[in-house]
Structure formats: C-alpha cells, structure tokens
C-alpha cells in the first residue's frame, strides 16, 4: 500500500516536471506560431531537445550571489517557490480508479477532506518564494517586483476564493474527488460560467502570467524579483512558474470542466480500466487546452498598468464574485424549496 503510493507519487512528480520542462518548448513554439516565426528548431528534430539544452546551460552557468544580499534567504527563495509549486498537485484526482493485479488503485495522491482549501492554501503561500527572493537580493528592482507580487497575490486570491465558494456551495463538499464525481453529468462550467471566468482571470494573475506579469515586467523592472538571480536558482523561479501554470490548468479542468469525465463515457461498452485510462488522457487533453489558452493570452494581450491591475481586482472581480456567490446561494435555496 505504501509502496503503491510512493510509486504513484514518483510518477506524478516526474510527469509534472517533464511537462513543465516541455512547456518552455511549447511556449516558444506557440509564441513563434502567433508571431509567424519558426521558433527553436536547431536541437534535434523540430528543436525537440531544446529544453534539455536550456537546462544544461542553466546548470553550467556561474551561480552568483550578490555580496550585499541576505545569503540564506537568497537561496531559500527559489526553493520555496519550487516546493509550493510541486505540492499543489497532491489533491488533484488524475483519473478514476484503476484495477491492476487484483487491486484497486486510486489515481490521486491524497483524497483530503478539505482538498480545495489545500489548493488555495498552497497557492497563497506560494508568493513567499517571490517576496523572500526579491527582498533578499537587496536590489531596488527586485524589491519592487516582490512588493508588486505581494499585493497582486492578495488582491486576486480573494476573488479566486469567492468564486470557489460558489462551487463548494453547489457540490456540498470540499473534497476535490467529490467535486469531480458530481460532474459526471453536467460540468460545473455550465452552472458557473461567471465563476469560471473570474477563476480563470485570477489563475492567470496568480501564475504571474501576462497580462498580469507586473512582478517581473522587463520594460520597467529589468527582471523584477529575479533580477539578481543566475544559474539554476533563476531556473527554479522560471520552472516554478511553468509548474504553477500546469497545476492551475489542472485545477481549472478538474473544478470546472469535469476532470477525467467525458461525454458518453459509460455508454461506450468498454471495460472499467480502459475508461479510466481514456479519462486520464481526456484530463490531460483539457489541461493542455488551457495551457494553450494561457500562452495564447500571453502573446496576444499587452501588460496592464499597475493601477488598472488593482482596479480590475478590487472593483470588478471581487464584487462580481460576491454577486456570483449570492446568486448561487439564492438559486440553491429556490431549487430546494420547489
């Protein structure tokens, strides 16, 4: 039992890292496609070995720590960013049950009672990596990046949590597995279109993706919070961002788009195991679709100005999310009375 879980955790972990590695390649290819270029095409066929070359370069670069920095925190920053990014995947159900060697295997690392709050919790402490890294660099651009990251996270977390509350009200459970199971018929996005939109925008902001990449915007802040970082520490920050993107897409797919469910999954006449494996593939298809939308937005929209960012978060998204929550509550009350 323990061995089973360990192997499963290792598989999920390596898949997450592999996907995050190849997202860098994917991003450059999407950018090239949107800008009518070729993108990386030198390393291997279609440039498929480019991420490995990049990683090799990152490892062999000089690892520089500024003299005036706070050394311990400077090293801790990227570590925290990476750790929190990797931890969130633990409560996501990657598929239904699988019957292997006469045993039933749950395709989820931990079915925690409060799964969805666990996700919110790890997202909310993810900003510490950026803030600690930016502050300890002892550079004003890094500091500005860190401050921006802090205020942006807090502003968008509220709307994100409020839109999730509406989902929890519909489902009546905080467990992610339960939320997915209830979407066997109709996906949550059809009940919660507004909630989905708010959640999606907040997910973009929480991942520091354009148009919300103010903590690291090159034109104003050089590199933002990672200005002073080099070598694999910089690599960790960038890598954590891609893991975050993968996990956010996974959360969106599980919470709003039915997770591993797909239409007519039980009327195909296939065995349980085949349906489960198809479910996993469908989930990954949904995840990649959202990742593509993330990239599409990044290479299409210009960056917000700082006051526009705050205006959108506090004066538009939060009132809308509260309205959505109250509306959902009223809808549930009416439908149970009738």
């Amino acid at each position: 039992m323990v061995l089973e879980k360990t192997i499963f955790i290792l598989i999920i972990f390596s898949i997450t890292l592999l996907i995050a590695t190849y997202l860098t390649y994917f991003e450059r290819k999407v950018a090239a496609f949107l800008q009518d270029r070729l993108g990386p095409d030198r390393a291997g066929p279609f440039g498929i070995l480019q991420p490995l070359a990049d990683a090799g370069k990152m490892f062999f670069k000089e690892d520089f720590i500024p003299a005036e920095s706070v050394k311990l925190l400077f090293i801790l920053g990227p570590g925290i960013a990476m750790f929190t990014a990797c931890m969130t995947g633990a409560v996501i159900p990657w598929g239904d049950q699988l019957q292997l060697f006469g045993r039933t295997i749950d395709l989820q690392i931990a079915d925690v009672d409060i799964g969805i709050l666990y996700v919110v919790g790890f997202v909310s402490i993810g900003v510490y990596g950026i803030m600690i890294g930016g502050w300890s660099s002892n550079n004003k651009y890094s500091l500005f990046g860190a401050i921006r990251a802090g205020s942006q996270m807090i502003s968008y977390e509220l709307a994100m949590g409020l839109s999730l509350i509406a989902i929890v009200m519909l489902t009546g459970s905080l467990s992610v597995r339960e939320i997915v199971e209830q979407q066997a018929g109709v996906w949550n996005v059809f009940y919660q279109p507004l909630g989905f939109l708010i959640f999606f925008i907040c997910a973009l902001a929480e991942c520091n993706r354009a148009p919300f990449d103010l903590p690291e915007c090159e034109t104003e802040l050089i590199g933002g919070y990672h200005t002073e970082y080099s070598s694999m520490k910089l690599g960790f920050f960038l890598f954590a961002e891609y893991i975050n993107m993968f996990i956010s897409a996974a959360v969106i797919a599980t919470v709003y788009f039915g997770g591993y469910h797909f239409p007519f999954m039980h009327s195909l006449g296939l065995s349980e195991n085949v349906v489960s494996i198809l479910g996993i593939l469908v989930l990954f298809l949904k995840i990649f679709l959202f990742i593509f939308i993330f990239m599409w937005i990044r290479w299409t929209l210009p960056r917000f100005r700082y006051d526009q960012l705050m205006h959108l978060g506090w004066k538009i998204l939060i009132p809308l999310a509260i309205l959505n929550m109250v509306g959902t509550g009223g809808f549930i009350l009416l439908s149970t009375k009738m």
Partner: peptide, 21 residues
C-alpha cells in the same frame, strides 16, 4: 484539518503577506 488549513490561508497566506508588503 479545516482549522489548520484556514489558519494557514488566513494568517500565513494573507495577513503575514500584508505585513511583509
């Protein structure tokens, strides 16, 4: 568990980030 995660979200995730900010 609920108390634990709410404690983390509210204190570590929001209030102390504001302090740091």
């Amino acid at each position: 568990q609920f108390l634990a995660i709410v404690h983390v979200i509210v204190y570590a995730g929001a209030i102390l980030v504001l302090f740091l900010f």
